[in-house]
Amino acid sequence: MKLAVASGKGGTGKTTVSVSLAITMAQRKRVAFLDCDVEEPNGHLMLNPVLQHKEMVAVLVPEIDEQKCDSCGYCAEICAFHALAVLPGNTLVFPEMCHACGGCWNFCPKQAITPVDNYIGVVEEGRAEKVRFVHGRLNVGVAMSPPLIRAVKAKAKNDELTIIDVPPGTSCPAVKSVEGVDFCILVTEPTPFGLHDLDLAVQVLHQLKIPCGVVINRSDGLDLTVEEYCGRCKIPVLQKIPLDREVAEGYAAGIPAVLVKKEWGELFSELMDKVEEVVSS
């Protein structure tokens, strides 16, 4: 099963949930943890994996053969992403704008353009005790994360429980990360920000037709507005995780919640049971 853990906004404790769930479930079955938050990967800081394997990820960008190019300007005209500028005698490429659509190299009338690799980041793989660990790190200054996210997701295997840590937000990186999962856990907190952003995330998942459920983090027991919302939208509340200063301090030091509080293992087992129940129904 492929399971995504997401949150509309950052800082709701999404990584706390995904990491603790991975550690708990690894006692029972094979688990892979895929950190798709390639802009700010954090899972490794909690899981401390031994990284054994590293792979550079590239996207294609155009390279211009000055000998063949006659500065006709056609490539710049057709590039929808303004990644090319043609000056007399010099055609410039802005790789950070390029979406690798292939328009320029397929349609340059002089066949002066060839695609070459442009490295945007790395995928690293390893083990954190029983958990198989994969994450991506986007090079600083690179705007385009989806190809790297795709490379991280390509490391999923079918015979494992795959837990995907999804980047915050509702735009392309989040969408690319949740696409194709069987279920998505949405982590929220009982504040107006939390509820507002939960609603946005739910809309995205509805649009993608991915079933979801909610985990209320830092619950102080008074989460009525979130529960009302879930009731209205017919989304199951899967688990509530209490507000706990010890856990917050553990987090600051890079220690996962289930290792700070062993008894929380139960909380995450229950969470997984509920997810399985919802998925199978």
Binding site: E40, V140, A143, G169
Partner: peptide, 8 residues
């Protein structure tokens, strides 16, 4: 949030 296109 992040370091991607929006922040840039």
């Amino acid at each position: 949030p992040g370091i991607g296109c929006q922040v840039i």
